[in-house]
Design a protein around this nucleic acid. Structure first.
Lengths: 213, 213, 213, 213
DNA sequence: CCATAAGCGAGACGGTACGTCTAGTCTTATC
DNA sequence: GATAAGACTAGACGTACCGTCTCGCTTATGG
C-alpha cells in the first residue's frame, strides 16, 4: 500500500479541486546553501566524526533526499562545504620570505576560517586512491591554492635572492604545512612561537651557523 | 562510511539553460489513455500492491503531474483503469438458470479481461466508508453491471417458473460471486468444476433429496 | 567512521569503568508479546493500509530490529498478530443446522475479536502464490479452524438426517463465508438479517417451494 | 509493500532449547591475541574507516562482549593493535645525520610494519583533547619512541659537531615526520627520493648555496 | 488570426517509511 | 567468574515513492 499520508480520496478523478496548500518551495541554490551552512555549523559543534547526514538535513530544513541528490555521502559533503568559497585570502608580500610564510599560516589558521586547516587534513585522510573525483576536488580546492601561494612567495624570494633559484615550492609547501598539521595530529596545536620555529628550521636547517662561515 | 563521488559542483545556479530535446506535447486524451494502459500493464506485471504512481508515469511517458491532475491517488486510478470500458459482455440467455449463471462467470473471469474479477475485489477492500465518491464509482462501474446481469437472469428464470417469483437477485449475486471471490482469497482459484458446484449449491441447497420427493 | 554516539573514550583499554546505564532489557517473549499487542492496537486505530512497522516498533517500545528479526515485513506480522491466539471459540451445537451456522458467524464476527473476519480476508489477498509459507500459516491458523467448525456442524447435521450424507463441507464453507466476506468488500457489512438470509439460501437454494410439497 | 517470507512462527517461546555446538573456551590471552590479530588483518583489508567491531569479533571468533570488555570502542582498539608490540627497531647510527634520518624512516615505513606510519596519524586525529588516557597511550607507544630515536640521532650529530648543540630534537621530529605524513594525507605517498629531499631540506633549508661558500 | 491560458514533460522539493547495519548493553547458559 | 553467543534498544544509513511545486514549452481556444 501507500506510504505517507493517503489522498483525501476525492472522487473518481473528475474533480480537480485544487485546494491551494500553503507549502512553499525554495530555489535550488537556497537549498544548497542551507545544507552547506548547516554542515559547517554542525562541524563546528560536534566535529567530523559525529556529524551525520540526518542532522545536516534536519538543521538545514532540507529533506535527506535533497542532500543525497547532491552529495553521495558525508565525506564529499564535508569536503565541499569546507572548500566551497573561493580562496579570498591574500598572498602575503612583505618583502621577506620568513615573514611571508609566517603570515600565510596566520591568515589561514583562524577560527573565522572554520578551522579548515585543522579539520580538512583529517577528512582528506578518508579519501583513498579509488576516489579519483573526490581526490581531484580536494587537490583543486584545498591543496592547490595553498601550494600556489607558496609558489608565489618562493618565487618572489628567489627573485630577491633570498633563496636559491631552483628551490622546489612543493617541498617548501610540505615542509611548512606538514609539521604544523602534524602538531594537530600529536594533540599539540601549534602556537605562534612554534610556527616561527618551524619556519626558521624550514629556512635554515639544523646546521650550525659556524659551518656556513 | 564509504566514500563516493563528489557533487558535480553545480555552479551556484544562475543559468538553468535547458537545451535538450525538442519536447513534444500530446493531446489530453492521448495522455489519459496512455496512463490507463500503463496502469493495466503494470497491474498485470507486479500486482496492485507493488504498483506505484511513479512507475505508471514512467511507463506511460507522462509526467507525474499529469497523473495526479486526473486521479488523486493510486486506488482511484486503478479502479478507473479496471472499470473504464463499458460493460460489453452479453448477459447469458440459455433458457436455463443454472447454465446462465455458469456462463456469466465464465464470461467475466477470463485473462483477456485483465483478471478484473480477481483484482478488483482486493482493490475494493481498500475503499472505506469515507470514500463516498470512490465507493459510488465502484458500485456503478463494477458491482451494478454484474448485479444487473443477475437481475435479468433471475427474472427470466422466475418467469420460466424455475425459481420462486420473490427470489432476491441481490442475494443471488452475493451467493454466486461471494464464494468464487473467496476462493481467490483462500489461494484456491476456482476451476470450472468448482463454479458448477457453487452454482448447484446456490441453487439447490444442502438439503437431502429425500425431502424433495 | 563510526555511526551513532562515540565511545566515552575512557582510557586505552585498561579501565573498563562500566558507568551503569539504566537501560533495561526485556525477555524475548515479552518483546514478542509487546510487538503483537501494538500491532493489533494500531490495526484497530488506523487499519491495515496505514499500519507501519515503524509505528509498531515505537508503540511496543521495541527496536525496529527486534521486529524485523521475527517477521520479514508487515504482512506476515499482521497475519501472525491476527491469528496468534488459538481458536478458543466453541463450535455451536444447537441440534439444528441453520441455527448452528448463524451462531458460528455471530461468534466469529464480533468487535472483541478484533474484526478478524473483516481485516484478514483483505490481508489474505496480499498473499500471493509465491508466499508458500505465509499461505500455509494463513490456512492453518485462519481458514482451517473455520473449515473444521463447518465440518463438524455439517457432519452432525448429516447424522441427524438434516442434509444428504455426501454434502461437501468445504463448499458449505465457501458458501457461508464467501458471501458474507463479499458484503464487506461491497461496502455493505452484513447485519444479522443478511446472515440469516444467506444461510437460508445456502441451505435451501433458490428453488420454488412447490418442489418441496 | 512487498510480501516476503513469514516468520518461523516461533511457538510463543517457552523452550529456548539451544542445542548447538559444544562451546569451547579459550584462555584470556588467546582471546586478546586473536582480537588484535583480527583487527590488524581487517585494517589491512578495508582500512580504518570501514573496520567495525562487529567484524573484528566475527573474524577473531570472539564475542563482541569480549572485545568491549577490553577496549571501550574502536579507536582504542586500533591504537592498541597498531602499537602493541614493543618498538624493536634499531636506532640508526651511521655516523652521518642525514643518513641516520633517511634510514629511520625507511626502517619504520615498511609494508611488513602494517603501514603504521600511514594509518596511525589518521587514527590519532580522532583522538580529541578529552581523551586523556588514549592520548597518553598514543604518546607513549607511538610518538615517544620515534621522538626518542630522533633525540638520540640529533644528540650524536651534535656531539660530532654536525649541527649546533642547542638544536631542538622535537622540532626535528616534526620537521621530518610531519611532511612525510602530510604526503599521505595529500594522496601522494612519499617515495625514497621524496624522503631524501625532505631530509635535505630539513637539514639545509632553503638558503642559497652562496652563503655556505 | 493571433494572443493567452491551459496543459504538457521534466524533475527537484519536503517528507515518511523502508529494510539494513552497527553501536554498545545486557542476559543466558556453558565451562 | 569469565566465557561465547546472541538478543536487546537505539539510531543513522542510503533508497524508494509520496504528493506538491516550479519551470519552460507547446498547443488549443476564444476574443
Amino acid at each position: 500500500m501507500t506510504r505517507g499520508k493517503p489522498a483525501p480520496a476525492s472522487a473518481s478523478g473528475t474533480a480537480p479541486a485544487r485546494a491551494a496548500a500553503p507549502r512553499r518551495r525554495r530555489a535550488s541554490s537556497d537549498v544548497e546553501d542551507a545544507i552547506l551552512a548547516a554542515t559547517l555549523d554542525i562541524l563546528d559543534e560536534v566535529g567530523f566524526a559525529d556529524l551525520t547526514v540526518e542532522a545536516v538535513a534536519a538543521r538545514s530544513g532540507a529533506a535527506k533526499t535533497a542532500v543525497y541528490r547532491r552529495w553521495p555521502s558525508k565525506v564529499p559533503l564535508v569536503v565541499d562545504a569546507l572548500t566551497r568559497s573561493r580562496p579570498d585570502w591574500p598572498i602575503p608580500d612583505t618583502g621577506d620570505l620568513r615573514t611571508d610564510l609566517v603570515s600565510l599560516w596566520q591568515i589561514l589558521d583562524v577560527p573565522g576560517h572554520r578551522w579548515v586547516e585543522r579539520i580538512l587534513p583529517l577528512v582528506a585522510s578518508y579519501v583513498g586512491p579509488g576516489d579519483g573525483d573526490l581526490a581531484s576536488l580536494l587537490r583543486e580546492r584545498y591543496f592547490e591554492p595553498r601550494l600556489q601561494a607558496i609558489r608565489v612567495i618562493v618565487h618572489r624570494a628567489a627573485a630577491r635572492g633570498e633563496i636559491r633559484p631552483d628551490a622546489d615550492p612543493e617541498l617548501a609547501f610540505d615542509l611548512l604545512f606538514g609539521p604544523l598539521a602534524y602538531r594537530y595530529v600529536r594533540g599539540l596545536p601549534p602556537d605562534s612561537r612554534t610556527v616561527n620555529q618551524v619556519v626558521d628550521l624550514a629556512l635554515e636547517g639544523l646546521r650550525p651557523r659556524r659551518e656556513q662561515g
